Measured scan of single mutants.
Amino acid sequence: NITNLCPFDEVFNATRFASVYAWNRKRISNCVADYSVLYNFAPFFAFKCYGVSPTKLNDLCFTNVYADSFVIRGNEVSQIAPGQTGNIADYNYKLPDDFTGCVIAWNSNKLDSKVGGNYNYLYRLFRKSNLKPFERDISTEIYQAGNKPCNGVAGFNCYFPLRSYGFRPTYGVGHQPYRVVVLSFELLHAPATVCGPKKST
């Protein structure tokens, strides 16, 4: 009989979020998941679920829940969905086509923008091939755009693969920082350890 609540607040209220190319993952297990707390949290810009209804989450049990978190621009949030393409979905964070879970995003301009620009948040701009679902690539190898080998030196046709967002408070909404948490639900042939409040007695 599990009684402790799942530590969703640790994920959602973290002081610093990860850059999207180096997205953070927390495994959540052996706890009671009260999703209504999240669902009623006012400032969400997006709360979209795939393969599961957000209002039914509290009735369900899962083997594991993974909480992935990172920061992207407002106009990139739409790429955090199954079957998407674009710089983020291709080179930074890719969801599987059969994704079961929820994508939760909110504007973090007050936290993550600075006058003069916040350059701490990076994304991958160049990559030889697209990421596989949930693949994480933190390499900083110089990207070779031409035929000539770069030998690890940036220059003509040789690019550092990461780019900084440089968030400023005055940017338009599409270019403002958004914090994103992706909850993915794993249902294995194993005992369920993460259940909603109704199922955990």
Rank of each mutant, 00 (worst) to 15 (best):
E10H: 06
V71W: 01
S29K: 09
N24Y: 04
V11Q: 03
P7M: 08
T55R: 11
G174N: 14
G172T: 13
S69L: 02
S19A: 07
R73M: 14
V194H: 11
E135F: 03
P169M: 05
H189Y: 10
D97P: 10
F156W: 12
T100M: 13
G101A: 00
S108E: 06
L187S: 15
P177I: 02
E141K: 11
T3G: 09
D137M: 00
T100C: 12
Q79E: 07
C61F: 06
G83C: 08
G196Y: 09
V37Q: 15
G74I: 01
T170Y: 10
G174V: 08
P54I: 15
P191I: 05
G174P: 09
P133E: 06
A81C: 01
D59R: 09
A33L: 12
S129T: 15
N130P: 15
W23D: 04
Q176K: 02
A190D: 13
C61M: 08
F185Y: 08
R124S: 03
T170M: 09
V181D: 01
D59K: 10
P82K: 03
V153N: 14
L122V: 13
G166C: 09
V65W: 02
V71L: 05
N120A: 12
G117L: 07
S78A: 12
Y121H: 11
F44R: 10
A89N: 03
C61I: 09
R73P: 10
A105G: 02
N109A: 12
V32M: 09
L122R: 15
C158M: 04
F167E: 05
V182T: 00
D9I: 13
K148F: 10
E76I: 00
T3R: 07
G146H: 08
V194A: 10
N151L: 11
G51W: 00
L125T: 15
A145P: 08
F41A: 08
Y171R: 12
Y178N: 05
K199H: 12
Y35S: 07
V180Y: 00
V103Q: 00
D90I: 01
K56Y: 06
Y21K: 03
F126Q: 15
Y178V: 15
A42S: 08
V65E: 01
F156T: 15
S184L: 07
L38D: 03
A33Y: 15
K26V: 12
R127T: 03
D34T: 04
A89M: 02
S19H: 06
C6Q: 04
A89K: 04
S108Y: 02
T15P: 13
N120G: 12
S129E: 15
D34F: 03
A18R: 06
Y50R: 01
K26I: 09
P169D: 10
K132C: 07
T140K: 11
A67W: 05
K48V: 06
V32T: 15
F41P: 06
N4V: 09
C61A: 12
E186Q: 10
P149W: 08
I72H: 01
L5I: 12
Y119I: 11
F12N: 01
L187Y: 10
Y171T: 14
T193F: 08
V11N: 02
A42W: 05
S164N: 12
I104Q: 00
T63W: 05
A154W: 08
L125K: 15
Q84Y: 03
H175N: 15
R27I: 13
Y159P: 11
N58K: 11
D34C: 04
G83E: 06
Y66M: 07
V77G: 02
S139I: 04
